[in-house]
Nucleic acid binder design. Sequence first.
DNA 1: CGCTTCACCTAACAAGCGTTAGTTTTAGTG
DNA 2: CACTAAAACTAACGCTTGTTAGGTGAAGCG
Lengths: 198, 198
Amino acid sequence: MAQSNLRREQIYGVAGALFSKRGYHATSVRDIAKQLNIQGGSLYAHIASKEDVLWEIIQRAASEFLGGVAPIASYGLPASERLRLMIRAHVEIVTHHLDDATVFFHEWRFLSTERERIVASQRDRYEACFRKVIEDGIRAGEFREVDAKLAALMTLSSVNMVYQWYKPDGPLSAEQVADGYTDLIINGLSAADTGGNP
Amino acid sequence: MAQSNLRREQIYGVAGALFSKRGYHATSVRDIAKQLNIQGGSLYAHIASKEDVLWEIIQRAASEFLGGVAPIASYGLPASERLRLMIRAHVEIVTHHLDDATVFFHEWRFLSTERERIVASQRDRYEACFRKVIEDGIRAGEFREVDAKLAALMTLSSVNMVYQWYKPDGPLSAEQVADGYTDLIINGLSAADTGGNP
DNA sequence: CGCTTCACCTAACAAGCGTTAGTTTTAGTG
DNA sequence: CACTAAAACTAACGCTTGTTAGGTGAAGCG
């Protein structure tokens, strides 16, 4: 048995970095242990299994997204404004938790069947938030009559993939990425030839 | 030594399906062999190594994209028309070679360092084609003055991720996906308040 | 028929995997 | 100082990994 949360947090941190860089199956528990200057078996004083570590990392990312972004969908604001805030919050999470987000998007397939199902339902719920806001915008006349499901998928594809190319010390800040994407996406959803505010 | 291309093609096919579903490291050579009703070691009469199989699959996908989409960037057409054709061709490749595309996008990290570098440069070249077309469109006044790099990344993110959710027997055809995305993306790039053709 | 070539087999290899049991070291507390 | 509990160690377990060596049966061909 063990109870030092500090050590366990270190394990999640190191594992997140390694899972993110090499992938879950290409990372051994001995690799994780080596970075903490302990033996592979010693990890099991703090964790129950390698998969539990993956699960914890993925669930932390999931609750960042669901806790930080989904509620915005219910704000009492115009749809375009809600969408803007959601994109910004999402990009902020991806860029500030780059390793965890990478593991979340890339390695969920290696969870057990039941856990994979949970992640799938979380992803569906999240996607539904974006779809709902877009549908709201269409109904309110803010957006064109596009396929809301397709538009939500495109939006999420764009902001998810940020983890694949974003470099914290690169030329673009998280804010700049969010602003650029928001502009392109919302403009894409808006009416083209009928001027909005003259 | 071996020379039957038929068997080798079967290996690429089975490996592509398995790498796509379970990932490279979670698929053993014995898994691949089992689907062909032969023993694991027998594969090595037709292939040199497991990594070579991954390399072949990835290179086939890469030349589909580079050979089928990149040339469109140089057509003598308006930028918006070229972009439309490129998106359509790309989506068509992803949906018609779903397994290979999935492996290409997901498993390139497990190639050797030199091979990974080659893939990276192919990806860069591909990305540059999209950026170029968008820059052309801005210069020609077809598109707004957006960040072309960001717009190219968003476009590619959207069309790449199609492999993650597209179901061949789902409600949407490849064409419908391409059309929907083209509409959203090109409208996003176009001027919002200044009507295009009066 | 004799010979070669191919595609497969069996069996093994060295290495690595996740995980466990039992033991020792370390740190904190009365 | 004695006692406890946490956190590390060593050593092994059974299993899987990619890959190789050597052998076998069938097909093709002079």
